[in-house]
C-alpha cells in the first residue's frame, strides 16, 4: 500500500513538472493553428519557424549574446573568483556579499537600473548594451560556481607547482585550472542558460532591431499565440536538455574514472 502511494506521489510530481512541456511539444506538431483541437501530425510550424525572418534574427542574437556573454563573463568571473579566494577573511566576506547582491536583486530592478546607467552614459540601447547587461548578470553565477572548487582545492597545490619551477601563469594553467575546471564548466553552462533564458533584463536594455527569442515570443504572444512559438520552445527545450545530458555524462564519467582505477 505504502509503496503504491509513494509511486503515485512521484507520478503526480513528475506530471506537474513535465505535463506543460509535453503538451507544448505535442501541439507543436499539430496541423491546426488552434490549441483546442488536434488535426493531425504536421511539421509545417517548424518550416514556418525557419522561414520567419524576425524569429531567425532573434535566434541569431540570442545565440550570439549567449556565447559572447558566457565567454566574457567566464573570464571575468574566473579572475574575480581567484582574487576573492586569495583575500583575507574580512575582504573575502565583503566581496562575497557584494557579488551575491545581483543574484538576489529582482530582475526588474537590475534591468531598469542598467538601462538608466546606459542612458546616463549616453550609450545607444542595442546590441552592445544587451551584451553588457548579460555579462553583468552572468558574472556572479560564474564566481559562485568556481569559488567552492577553489575552496576544495589543496591550498599547497599552487605552491607545489611554483616549487617545482613553474611560473605563476604556468602553475595556473597546468595545475589550478584543471582542478577547478568542473566549476568553470558549470559556471559557463549556467551563464549560457541564463542568457538564453532572460527576458526582463533584456527587455529593458535592448533597442530597436535587436531582440532575443524571449522578447520575440513575448511580442508574438501579445498578438496571439501561434504554434510557431510551440515549435520554437520545443527546439529550445531540446537543445538545453541535450546540453545538460552531455554535461551529466561528462561529470559521471570523471567520477567513475577516479573510483574504478
Amino acid at each position: 500500500m505504502m509503496r503504491h502511494l509513494k509511486r503515485l506521489y512521484i507520478g503526480i510530481v513528475f506530471f506537474f513538472l513535465y505535463a506543460p512541456i509535453l503538451i507544448l511539444m505535442i501541439f507543436s506538431f499539430n496541423k491546426s493553428r488552434y490549441m483546442s483541437k488536434w488535426d493531425g501530425f504536421s511539421l509545417k510550424w517548424y518550416a514556418d519557424l525557419f522561414s520567419d525572418r524576425d524569429i531567425m534574427s532573434a535566434l541569431y542574437y540570442t545565440l550570439l549574446i549567449a556565447v559572447l556573454s558566457t565567454i566574457i563573463a567566464t573570464v571575468i568571473g574566473l579572475i574575480t573568483a581567484i582574487g576573492i579566494h586569495d583575500m583575507n577573511k574580512l575582504g573575502k566576506g565583503i566581496m562575497v556579499n557584494i557579488s551575491y547582491l545581483p543574484i538576489l536583486n529582482p530582475d526588474i530592478v537590475t534591468g531598469i537600473s542598467l538601462m538608466m546607467l546606459f542612458v546616463f552614459m549616453k550609450l545607444e540601447l542595442g546590441f552592445l548594451t544587451l551584451l553588457l547587461a548579460h555579462i553583468t548578470f552572468n558574472v556572479p553565477y560564474v564566481i559562485f560556481s568556481i569559488l567552492p572548487k577553489l575552496r576544495q582545492m589543496n591550498k599547497h597545490l599552487y605552491e607545489a607547482a611554483l616549487d617545482l619551477g613553474a611560473t605563476p601563469f604556468y602553475a595556473f594553467r597546468k595545475v589550478i585550472l584543471p582542478e577547478i575546471m568542473p566549476g568553470v564548466v558549470t559556471g559557463m553552462i549556467l551563464a549560457f542558460t541564463l542568457s538564453i533564458d532572460d527576458f526582463v533584463i533584456s527587455y529593458f536594455t535592448t533597442g530597436a532591431g535587436v531582440s532575443n527569442l524571449s522578447i520575440i515570443i513575448y511580442s508574438m504572444a501579445r498578438v496571439g499565440i501561434k504554434p510557431t512559438i510551440n515549435a520554437l520552445s520545443t527546439l529550445l527545450f531540446i537543445s538545453v536538455l541535450l546540453l545538460l545530458l552531455i554535461v551529466n555524462k561528462r561529470t559521471s564519467n570523471n567520477n567513475g574514472k577516479e573510483k574504478v582505477i
Binding site: 599547497h156 597545490l157 605552491e159 607547482a161 611554483l162 616549487d163 617545482l164 619551477g165 613553474a166 611560473t167
Partner: peptide, 29 residues
C-alpha cells in the same frame, strides 16, 4: 620567487596534482 630557487619541497599532506598520474606528477618539474 620559489620557482627560481634550487630548493624543492615535500609538503605536508603531499600536495600531489590530483589530475595527473604518478609519472606526470614526478615529471612536472
Amino acid at each position: 620567487p620559489p620557482y627560481k630557487r634550487k630548493v624543492n619541497t615535500v609538503f605536508q599532506r603531499y600536495a600531489l596534482f590530483p589530475h595527473m598520474n604518478v609519472e606526470e606528477n614526478i615529471a612536472f618539474g
